[in-house]
Simulated assay, not measured.
Amino acid sequence: MNTTRSRARSAAVCAATLCLLGVPSLPALAASSSPSPYGVSTLDKQLLTAAHQGNLWEIATSQQAQSAAATACVRRVAAEFIRDHHALDAGVVKTAARLGVALPSGQTDAQLKQTAALKSLAGTAAYDAAWLKAQYPAHAQTLALIDKEIASGTNPLVKSLAKSARPVVARHTQMVNRGVCRAVVPAASQT
């Protein structure tokens, strides 16, 4: 028992140190075969579930944008989102598996409806603006949940996951909020 606690403390200290140094330690921690000695709170599970479904939605809508967007800028941003959300989701899936948290197999109904609504605009000038507009609240909500997990989550693996995901999600939020592709948004849509 003492050995297990000692190993868990060592792993937590190591993870915190690596996180502070900016080293992405989560995949190595998530791949570890020993079970976590910490419980998984409702908030921890909420983050894992929402992050997984959000990543699935981001990947799906960004893949859609690769062929549906009218501008190279939106296609470029979408390619970055695909790459980043695949990487983020790999960490979520590994962490959830390690902690015994079952993840949903797909997006929420609301996300599926939003994906379909975007698809209906494919190939039109309105698609790019709609895609960018949909990205902001999705990333802002995820960022709020990440911050809540960092402040109040209980499981060190989930908190570490949130800390490592935060800069990526914040950068994505800034990209769509600052208007990296602002030129594609029609003047009537800018409110």
Rank of each mutant, 00 (worst) to 15 (best):
C19Q: 15
V184R: 10
V169I: 05
L161Y: 05
T42K: 09
T61L: 08
Y127Q: 06
H52C: 10
R5S: 13
P24S: 11
R7I: 12
S67R: 12
S6A: 15
A97L: 12
V101Y: 00
H86N: 15
C181G: 07
V40K: 01
S32Q: 11
V158P: 01
P167Q: 06
T17Q: 09
K148M: 01
T3M: 15
N2K: 15
A129E: 04
K119R: 14
T4Y: 10
H172L: 05
T95K: 06
R182P: 07
A96Y: 05
D109I: 15
N55R: 04
A151C: 01
W131H: 03
W57L: 14
V169G: 01
L56N: 04
K148T: 01
L56Q: 06
P156A: 00
P24G: 10
A140M: 08
S25G: 05
P104W: 10
F81C: 11
K45M: 06
P156C: 00
A8N: 09
P35C: 04
E149C: 01
Q135W: 02
Q63S: 11
S160R: 03
L99E: 08
D44I: 00
A87S: 14
A97E: 11
R9V: 11
A165G: 06
T3F: 15
P35F: 04
C181I: 04
A165Y: 01
V158S: 02
A125N: 12
A144H: 02
I150L: 02
S105R: 14
T4R: 12
C14M: 14
Q174S: 07
V40Y: 01
C73A: 07
Q53H: 01
L18D: 10
S62H: 04
L99M: 13
E58M: 09
S34I: 10
V158K: 00
G179S: 05
K133M: 05
T3I: 14
R76S: 11
Q135C: 04
N155C: 00
T42N: 08
A79D: 09
A117G: 15
V101S: 07
P104I: 15
C181V: 02
V184S: 14
D109K: 13
G123R: 08
E80H: 13
C73F: 09
R98D: 12
P156R: 00
A68M: 08
A162Q: 03
V180K: 06
V92L: 06
A8I: 08
Y136G: 03
A51L: 02
V93M: 12
A69Q: 05
V13K: 13
Y38V: 02
T95R: 06
T191A: 14
V92K: 08
S152F: 04
R182M: 12
V168K: 10
R9S: 11
E58N: 07
R83Y: 07
N55K: 02
T4N: 10
D89R: 10
E58K: 05
I82N: 13
V169D: 03
E80M: 07
D89K: 07
A188H: 11
E149S: 02
G153T: 00
A125T: 09
Q63P: 03
S33N: 13
A125S: 13
P167I: 01
Y38E: 10
A68S: 06
W131P: 00
V180G: 07
V77W: 05
A96W: 03
L48M: 01
Q174N: 09
M175Q: 14
K163H: 07
A28I: 05
L43V: 00
T154C: 04
R98V: 13
P24K: 06
A50V: 07
Q135D: 00
A165E: 07
R5E: 14
H172D: 03
V101W: 00
I59K: 03
